[in-house]
Amino acid sequence: MQFTAKFLLSAMKPEQFPNDARTGGAPEVAFLGRSNVGKSSLLNSLIGEAAAKVSSTPGRTRAINFFALHEGTPQKHAFTPKLVFADLPGYGYAKISKSISAEWPTFIEPYLQEREELALCLCLVDTNIPPQTSDTQLIHALQQMQRPYVVVGTKADKLSNNQLAKSVAVLKKAHEVENVIAISSKTDAGIKALWAAILQGTQV
């Protein structure tokens, strides 16, 4: 299945979230994770184009950025989106964590708790560092909200196969999850497996 991505809008409060007129009620996939974990890079890898801006400065994304995914090529695609990707602000970066944390209750928590179109959350964790408490807290919060989620291990290309296997095992134990899909936005490793999980989770 081929998709053409189109930037919809940036939202910093619930009333700015896209309505059905913009999305056709398409299921939404939220990208969540610590600052600099690779959310924008992964989004670009999934859609095969640089739709999301990638910054070298952690915490640069301060709004929820929505992207509509239309089935087909840029020259000829379906008018109504099949999917919507939502790139959420990162958390846990020391220099801006307080300001980001202050913003979460105002529009990010309402999005996660109340957004009817939200079908699947991608929880991104870095395979190159030890498990982070903030990631565990996010996973537990989604469990309490009864939101379906998939844990994605990013930057897998930086580790050998043995190192990656050990890292994934540690992450699964620490976060108390059965599966972590290891991916690399640079080599596209794991992207097909993640796409399969997204399509299954959104029933597209």
Rank of each mutant, 00 (worst) to 15 (best):
M1Q: 14
Q2A: 07
Q2S: 11
T4Y: 10
A5G: 10
L8Q: 09
L9Y: 10
A11N: 13
P14I: 05
F17S: 08
F17K: 06
D20G: 01
T23I: 09
T23P: 09
G24K: 10
G25N: 08
A26C: 11
A26R: 08
P27C: 12
P27L: 12
E28Y: 01
R34W: 11
V37M: 01
V37D: 00
V37S: 00
S40Y: 05
A50G: 10
A52E: 04
K53H: 09
K53D: 05
V54N: 07
S55L: 07
T57C: 03
P58E: 08
G59C: 03
R60Y: 02
R62V: 15
A63N: 11
N65W: 07
A68E: 03
A68Q: 04
A68R: 04
L69D: 00
Q75P: 04
P81M: 12
L83D: 02
D87F: 01
L88K: 01
Y93S: 12
Y93Q: 11
A94F: 14
I96K: 10
I100M: 15
E103I: 00
E103H: 05
P105I: 08
T106N: 13
E109W: 13
L112G: 04
L112A: 06
R115F: 06
A119I: 01
A119M: 01
L120V: 10
L122T: 00
C123D: 05
L124V: 06
L124T: 04
D126M: 07
I129R: 08
P130L: 06
T136M: 06
T136N: 10
L138I: 04
L138V: 06
L138F: 05
H140K: 15
L142R: 03
Q143S: 15
Q146D: 15
Y149N: 10
Y149T: 09
G153I: 04
K155R: 13
A156T: 02
A156Y: 01
D157K: 13
D157N: 12
K158A: 14
L159V: 06
N161M: 09
A165N: 14
K166G: 08
S167K: 00
S167M: 02
A169M: 11
A169I: 08
A169E: 14
A169C: 09
L171E: 07
K172D: 12
K172P: 09
A174S: 13
H175C: 03
H175T: 05
E176Q: 15
V180H: 04
I181N: 03
I181E: 02
S185F: 01
D188G: 00
A189N: 12
A189D: 12
K192C: 04
A193T: 14
W195L: 07
A197P: 00
L199E: 11
G201F: 00
Q203C: 11
